[in-house]
Design a protein around this nucleic acid. Structure first.
Lengths: 208, 208
DNA sequence: TCATTATCGTACCTAAGAGTATTTTATCAT
DNA sequence: ATGATAAAATACTCTTAGGTACGATAATGA
């Protein structure tokens, strides 16, 4: 019942959990999760390996915790755009805008940690893998709900919801990969404008 | 000038180069190039490590050679479809057909080694990386030429060629990733039908 | 027959990375 | 003070993976 959050028994902890998370996040994000070791992170912040293991349990535990941070930073904003009640074209503009932010200006790495992790899921531990699938599932669900709501207004009428959700997910992944490969911002934006048009046309019927 | 290809001096070679390549190809393709070691491949075919290194020089050399084999197997067929002179819709059907073959029925791994390598290019050696970029460049060039030809027939009129090429490349990558993640064949086909429609519409103008 | 040549394959080297045993040290409670 | 508690950090272990040193071996050619 005291002010301090720590229970204050034993040697006080000096390891800065948030600093570990932030450092790991930036490293994983910019170099790829498979190309950064726990030792790398420790060296970067001057922490000891047992300290990190005490805090996160394992490599898997750290990656899972980082994925949770990343979710709040770059996945939830997408979901928020989808859940906000706004005209479909505005939502699409917002999605494209979010995906094609000028990352260098913002000091944020190129690409998407979530997308990278999916591309290397074989190299992830079980708890990170599980979390990853949950995030993916939630994202697809958010797309689906957004599409269903738009359909009530007569949009996306000729495309099945699950197909449209996968299509949006695919464009998101593709855009993030292009960004990582160094394709210019404006080019990606242009590709996305055309790509997302695919779900919007009224005469969008599958040919027999 | 003799019939035999080998110069026949010294102890005859027993290492089967093609078998190494085939085994490495299947392993890289099914498990991801970063998840298969040279030792794994040696154990699978009963070869010795020095033998493999004598033949390919290094891990990088083997991966590069495998990528060349893969190119002939799964990239060149795409380029062939694009270079064949046929109606645009037929070409698109052929592309979708090739991408959504029933892999299990054909005994071929899911996904695309080229796409996987691109997603993990940080972990590749310089010569594989170089080859990878060359393949990518050639593929984009083939898309571009195909699009330019179609434009002569009044198609793709409102989309810049380079944007359309990147868009097609993006859909290819997305489809291969979905396949690897276990999305059903028919679902991927449906997503692709809608996605590739994006480049085809006549009223496909970027809104201002 | 015997030197020459080139491959074979065992047994090694080295680096890196995940994870831990152990001793020290800083704080709290009595 | 002093014992209990829990975190600190050094210095390990273990495993994997790329790569190689080197003696053995199987052929050719004189």
């Amino acid at each position: 019942m005291n002010e301090k959050t720590n229970s204050a028994r034993g040697r006080p902890k000096t390891l800065d959990r948030d600093r570990v998370l932030q450092t790991a996040l930036i490293q994983y994000w910019s170099k790829g999760p498979a190309n950064v070791s726990i030792s790398d992170i420790c060296n970067l912040i001057g922490a000891s390996k047992p300290g990190v293991y005490r805090e996160f349990g394992s490599d898997d535990g750290l990656k899972k915790a980082v994925l949770e941070v990343y979710h709040g930073l770059a996945i939830q904003p997408v979901i928020d755009i989808l859940e906000k009640n706004q005209p479909t074209t505005d939502a699409i503009d917002a999605l494209i805008g979010f995906m094609t932010q000028d990352r260098t200006a913002l000091g944020i790495p190129q690409g998407c940690l979530f997308v990278m992790m999916r591309a290397q899921s074989e190299r992830l531990g079980p708890s990170t893998y599980h979390k990853l699938n949950k995030v993916h599932h939630d994202l697809l669900a958010a797309y689906s709900e957004w599409i269903e709501r738009a359909k009530l207004h007569g949009e996306f009428i000729n495309i099945p919801t699950d197909i449209a959700a996968l299509l949006l997910d695919m464009q998101h992944g593709g855009a993030m990969r292009m960004q990582r490969e160094g394709v210019p911002r404006e080019t990606i934006e242009s590709v996305l404008r055309f790509a997302l048009r695919a779900v919007m046309f009224r005469d969008n019927v599958i040919r027999s």
